[in-house]
Design a protein around this nucleic acid. Structure first.
Lengths: 150, 150
DNA sequence: TATTGTTATACTCTATAACTATA
DNA sequence: TATAGTTATAGAGTATAACAATA
């Protein structure tokens, strides 16, 4: 094989300088790089990332209702309903009618849900093992990202 | 209504301090915040974000093959095949057998594809109008994100 | 035997409309 | 009339297996 490299070979660097200037592209690529590790840490608890997020938010926000939860995690009401159905079937949480407004449902973790979240959470208590990022850089990164979405 | 706020009301802040420490969660939330604006800028060209990315990468990497393209954008070979089918039907690109290795397909933009990419690209030439981020902060953010996925 | 890409298909995720009940 | 949530369903996106052509 020739030493002259071209785009048909896998060791030539991809030219993507234009895309690398786009914040959205960078956020997505970074997430896609991290995602497999997150899934791997949760699979032993039979939790998907969004389910872990739901457990975390209910745990930290007792009596949160479905509207606020769905809004926070970008899940529409119909899709949240079916997601919560599955979690309620697994007895990780319960839905209770709000006595002050019987239209809304108050969400609470069961003991089983609290226990599972506690265990799963341990997987993320230490750092996420993001290679190439110092602690300072990680803190700086979180600050900048939160400026975008908070 | 009482002035005392609780989690059932929409103006109380969500407690998500644990999730906000997770790099993956932050990357995804930031992307989800930006995504609608990206889609809005591309819809007039009937392009999805991934299609714009494909145009950009082929444009910047003439004669790239499908394996390298798919690997760069996290699209599996079967799904890339059907995605490229649609774009080839729209005459935005062509697939040519590589004469040096007839297994692989070389990708090239058509004139129509080049023109469309040029027009669509103008939508992103200026800044992406990420509110709350100065130019310096944006550059810093890109540097940190690229440390993760490059 | 290994690699590139395709086809077919199943699975998951997301979006939309119509509905119930409560306010 | 408006809101919170549900049901049903369609559509888009993703994953898996089997395959053909080429190396």
């Amino acid at each position: 094989m020739s030493n002259i490299k071209n785009n048909q070979e896998s060791d030539a660097a991809i030219e993507q300088s234009f895309l690398l200037k786009q914040v959205g592209y960078n956020c997505l690529q970074a997430y896609l790089k991290i995602e497999p590790d997150i899934k791997k840490r949760l699979i032993r608890y039979q939790l998907k990332p969004v389910e872990f997020t739901v457990l975390s938010l209910i745990s930290a926000n007792p009596q949160i209702n479905q509207k606020r939860l769905g809004h926070t995690i970008n899940v529409s009401p119909p899709n949240l309903a079916t997601l919560l159905d599955k979690m309620e079937l697994r007895q990780l949480l319960v839905r209770k009618r709000n006595p002050n407004d019987k239209r809304s449902q108050i969400l609470e973790l069961t003991e089983k849900g609290q226990f599972l979240f506690g265990k799963a959470r341990q997987q993320f208590e230490k750092n996420e093992s993001i290679p190439n990022l110092s602690n300072d850089e990680q803190k700086q990164l979180l600050r900048l990202l939160q400026k975008i979405f908070l």
